Structures are given as structure tokens and as C-alpha cells.
Amino acid sequence: MDSQMELAFEKSKSGDKEERFEAYQTILEATDQKVDWAYEVWDQLLEDLTHKDNHQRSRAAQYLANLAKSDPEIRMMNDFPLLWEVTKDEKFVTARHSLQSIWKVGIAGTPQRERLMEYMVERFKGTDEKNYTLIRNDILQNMRNLYDHYNEESIKQTALDLIETVDDQKYKKKYLGIWK
């Protein structure tokens, strides 16, 4: 990892709000492509998933999701449950940001996509969570993102099957809108 990226990781944890956001953007942009330094930050990011600062947890989850494509050892298969936990964070904004980026794990490979789909399907079925309609929306958007990436009919069919289980017509219509 070059010194500029090291500095971005440092700044994403400290400095003023503007500096942190700039560093966050830099890291997300860099990790949008495969990088050869993922394991230099991997363990620290795993640790940060349980950091006392919810912003740190959120950033760590988003960075890890982005780094899944740069994981030739496929560590994500073992670490995914830790990442998934952040999608249920006590701070809803942290949970939501993590959930909205977790689809990127699914573009890392077939085993990762299958694991992610299992977790999302199971989570969609629950209605005891606070804000479950927003969570369902994010899950369906994640499936849409995966479908757009892979153009795999089974992903779309899974999403449509889940939407069929929704009783509330207002939400059913909203969820179907993701697939138009």
C-alpha cells in the first residue's frame, strides 16, 4: 500500500469531519477496483467492526465489503458473519450504511454471493426488527445490484418470490418498483 493510501486510512479515523469524509471517499474509490494491499488492513478493519465509535464500525464494514473482491484467500467466507452483524448495529444509520454496501461482497465470487443471498433471504423473512420495511427495501436493492452485475435470473426470481410474501400492498408495490 502506498503512503497516500496509508494516510487516507489514518485520516478516516481522525482529523476533522471534512478530512475524514475526504479520506472515506478516497478509500471507497480505491477499493472499487481490485487492490493488492487488502490484507494489510483486513485484520484492523475486522477489529473496527466492533469499535466503540459507530462511524468507525460503519466505515470498516463498507471498506471490507469493497475489499471482498481483493480477497484471493477468500477470507470473507469466514469473516462474513462479523461483517453481517454490523448490518444489525444498535445505531440504525450504521446498520443501514453497512447493509446498503454489503452487496459488494456478492460480486467477489460465487461462494460469497451464495452466502450473502442466504443471509439476505433469511433476514427479509423477519418482521420483528424495527424499521424492517426499510431493511427489506435495502435487501431487495442489494439483490437488484447483484442482478445488474451478474444478469442472473435466479437472483431476480428470489427477489420476486420474496416480494410475493409481502401482505401490505403499499410495500409490495414499492418493492416491485426496484425491479422495473
Rank of each mutant, 00 (worst) to 15 (best):
R115N: 05
K88Q: 06
W37V: 12
T158E: 07
L134I: 14
K170I: 14
S3V: 10
H149A: 15
K13M: 03
Q112G: 05
D53P: 04
L116H: 00
K156I: 13
T94G: 09
D148R: 09
M76L: 01
T133F: 12
F80Q: 02
R123P: 12
Y175C: 02
S12W: 00
Q169R: 10
L134S: 08
A23H: 00
N78H: 01
R113M: 05
Q56P: 03
K52V: 14
Q44G: 10
N142H: 06
K17T: 15
D32S: 13
V105Y: 01
T94F: 13
T158G: 08
Y63E: 11
T165K: 12
K13S: 05
D167L: 08
V105W: 02
A61G: 13
V41A: 07
N131C: 15
E122Q: 03
K125E: 15
A8R: 07
D32C: 08
E118G: 06
K34I: 09
G106D: 00
A60R: 15
E22T: 15
K88Y: 09
M120T: 12
W103A: 04
K174W: 12
K69C: 09
W37F: 07
I107T: 07
A38Q: 05
I107N: 01
W103P: 00
L45I: 11
T158Q: 08
M1G: 10
Q33H: 12
E85I: 07
K69H: 08
E114G: 10
E47S: 11
R75M: 01
V35M: 07
L82A: 10
D53Q: 10
N151K: 14
T133Q: 02
F21L: 11
A8P: 03
L162E: 09
H97N: 11
S98Y: 07
Y132S: 05
E164D: 10
G15H: 04
Q4E: 08
L116K: 00
E90H: 04
E47P: 06
L67E: 00
E29S: 15
Q62Y: 10
K174A: 11
L140D: 02
L134G: 04
I163G: 08
M1R: 13
K180L: 04
A108E: 05
Q169H: 10
N78V: 02
L28N: 13
R57E: 09
L28S: 08
W84I: 01
D32W: 11
L160I: 13
I27E: 04
G106P: 06
F124P: 14
Q141S: 03
